[in-house]
Computed example of a mutant assay.
Amino acid sequence: MSEPNPRVRHHEVLAEEAGQRIDNFLLRQLKGLPRSRVYRLLRRGEVRVDGGRARPTRRLRAGEVVRIPPVTQPRQAEAAAPSRGLAERLRGAVLYEDERLLVLDKPSGLAVHGGSSVGLGLIEAMRQLRQELRFLELAHRLDQETSGCLMLAKRRSTLRRLHEQLRQGRIEKRYTALLTGALQQDRRRVEAPLERLGGAPRERQVRVSEQGRQARTTFEVLRRYRRACLVDARLGTGRTHQIRVHARHLGHPVAGDDRYGDRRANAELRRSGLRRLFLHAARLQFHHPDSGEAVSVEAPLSGDLQTVLEALAAGEH
């Protein structure tokens, strides 16, 4: 079975989507469409980026507008309804809300988008829970295992203004992370370009590379433990896996990171109760995209992460 998509769509590229190839972007946007069909759309010039033709290898930049032509896609199964437990958790996760904006405390382990390997993501669940909203879209993304502040826009105009603030670096994102080992300095600024490697989204890797895009992260130690340190991480740019890769570049990977982390250190920290990536989007500070008022939203550390810190502190006595 297939379903028509009779309307042309125009998608503004998010900061987090920048750097990916247009062919890979289309394969995710047009789920189930054969790869050969995607390349045919590109060859015929039916896909446009800022009004111009695009080769399959062209990499997207934040703020560009991609014209996605009407196509007939394989019919997708209706999204599964969120479980009762997930629904209750998301209803209780609202940190800030007004008529144009919604900020949630995203749970760890929940992907922001559904996909071939993830049946239901946060945005799909929220659209089902808030069916009275005619528009609801992610303003940015968090990794599946990262918890904390996540912005959603209720109006397309609000989304555009938030994207503009993100591109200009006017939204301050602060993270709380536990790094393995002992970071010597109380404050470290990392400026190391990051390159995204190919592969399916769940296997995609990022590395420090001179061929990559500029990336800046500032780490400030909040507390030291015998075999780890709690830090405040401030993003100067918003690259994929930026904190995780920069922490590894320092020689102190984020605790519980099964992709870029230290396997032995993670095994030791499991004895303190760590069962997930210790990376939490603790604070967002920005000017409201419509009113211009200053907004600051904070998400407290979850109970499981607090328990880990208590165990580490107890182990020092």
Results as ranks from 00 to 15, higher is better:
E16I: 01
I22W: 06
L30Y: 12
K31L: 10
L41W: 06
D50S: 11
P56C: 10
R61M: 10
A62T: 01
I68H: 02
E78L: 07
E97Y: 07
P107N: 06
G119L: 09
G121E: 12
M126E: 13
L133F: 10
L136I: 13
Q144T: 15
E145W: 00
S147V: 09
A153K: 00
Q165G: 02
L179C: 10
D186S: 09
G199D: 14
R202I: 11
R202A: 11
R204L: 08
R204E: 14
R207Q: 10
V208Q: 06
E210W: 01
G212H: 05
A215P: 14
T217Q: 04
T218E: 14
E220S: 06
V221S: 02
A228W: 11
C229S: 11
V231N: 03
A233L: 09
L235P: 14
I243S: 02
I243C: 03
H246F: 03
L250R: 04
H252E: 12
V254S: 03
D257S: 02
D262H: 05
A267K: 08
L274P: 01
R275L: 05
H280G: 04
A282Y: 15
L284R: 01
H288Y: 02
P289Q: 04
G292L: 08
A294D: 14
A294Y: 08
S302P: 12
S302C: 09
G303T: 10
L305P: 09
A314C: 11
H317R: 11
